[in-house]
């Protein structure tokens, strides 16, 4: 009984995490400028990481893989937001203004 419950819970977490990745991906493609795009993309670094890894840990149960998953999750939670910050900071320093109205292909060039 408790096994089935854990299984259902872990699949709910995995599905939610997958949905977060999907939303982040759509946001990265559809949002108007660079800063909003990395805002969407950072969703995959944080929320999706937490949900997917929690789901996988529930699948693994109390074992060595769970510990490894925890280590990888901590690593990703540390590096992901840092990378997003560094990206935004570099863009700001190179002169890209965080302005909601700038919707040009030029922005794409900067972001790429």
């Amino acid at each position: 009984m408790i096994d089935i419950g854990l299984d259902i819970l872990s699949w709910i977490l995995l599905t939610l995490g997958g949905a977060c990745v999907l939303i982040g991906g759509i946001g990265g493609l559809r949002l108007p400028n660079f800063y909003t795009r990395i805002h969407a993309a950072s969703l995959t670094d944080t929320m999706a990481t937490l949900l997917i890894f929690a789901g996988m840990m529930l699948q693994a149960g109390l074992s060595l893989p769970t510990l490894k998953l925890l280590a990888i999750m901590l690593f990703l939670l540390l590096t992901g937001p840092t990378a997003t910050y560094a990206l935004a900071n570099a863009a700001l320093l190179s002169g890209l203004k965080p302005d909601a109205e700038t919707v040009t292909d030029n922005d794409k060039g900067h972001a790429g």
């Binding site: 690593f75 540390l78 590096t79 840092t82 910050y85 560094a86």
Partner: peptide, 10 residues
């Protein structure tokens, strides 16, 4: 600062 601190940690 932030990348540096995190990087040093890693």
């Amino acid at each position: 600062l932030i990348p540096q601190v995190v990087g040093r940690l890693l």
